[in-house]
Design a protein around this nucleic acid. Structure first.
Lengths: 144, 144
DNA sequence: GTAAAAGCTCCAGTTGCTATAGATTCAAGA
DNA sequence: TCTTGAATCTATAGCAACTGGAGCTTTTAC
């Protein structure tokens, strides 16, 4: 059978859509295992590395922190993870995301509200600034 | 008339609801002017500083970056800002926030979708992990 | 053989803080 | 006035999650 395919760091980066520097950074922070090296010291990756890196990239795209990803990978690496564990991490994260969305919605409402208070002309005085400077006004809701 | 009221950094922090260290940080990064000092070197603030600091805190709560706040303060400091300028910065920022919300919504959808694919039992194998590892699957929409 | 491309390490910078350590200063009570 | 104890001072390092550069070596292609 054929020799398993290997990749230089550049090729790996291209395939995974992760920048070269970021690959090295992930290695340094322990998300990606140290690959073997050529005699000259260049990193040599395999399909396994590629898959893992894509996994990491996707998790990042889904907004998981590196810490959370480390958690997921630990589960996977231990090979003793259960579907329930993974699912609950995912749902927790989804709840975080929902909270963030709610916060941003409130934010947007406030921004639009204060923006609507001025006509935006060439007047050298702006109610937005006044609102932000004045101590009496309350901008946001309580929680936060 | 009475001597204008002054505040130590701790009092200022309490009034503005910004931490002491953060106040010093804002000074260092040029958002807050260097206040006069006592003979011993302690900072002495006035009402003006307090107002400015509250302004900064509110902008941060509204999600403005320090750079954006610097922009707003520059306008204010120049005293030549127009309502239109401030309004347009605010609307731009609101657009950013909307984009962020849209991204997070997509994210949440994806998370819920993949979470729904497993029953969450004690099974030592999880479709979420599979989806994230498999190369064929597309998780997110194009734009991003 | 040579030259360009790709890789190497190390380190600094980004944003918006937070948190020490160790020295000093200030305010209030005895 | 002296003496605590709280507040403040500076300087520095750390967090996340990268990104970029300098200055070198290795690999690859012609």
């Amino acid at each position: 059978m054929a020799t398993p395919r290997t990749y230089g760091i550049g090729e790996l980066a291209r395939q995974s859509q992760v920048k070269v520097e970021t690959v090295r950074y992930y290695e340094q922070s322990g998300l990606l295992p140290n690959p073997p090296r050529t005699d000259g010291g260049h990193r040599l990756y395999t399909e396994t590395h590629l898959k893992r890196l894509v996994f990491i990239r996707r998790c990042r795209e889904l907004g998981f922190s590196m810490k959370e990803i480390r958690g997921l990978l630990d589960l996977v690496d231990g090979r003793k993870y259960t579907c329930g564990e993974v699912r609950s991490l995912t749902l927790e994260h989804a709840a975080d995301v929902r909270r963030k969305i709610a916060d941003l919605r409130g934010l947007e409402r406030t921004l639009m509200r204060i923006a609507s208070e001025c006509e935006g002309g060439a007047v050298p005085k702006c109610p937005i600034i006044d609102v932000l400077f004045d101590s009496g006004t309350r901008l946001t809701d309580a929680r936060r």
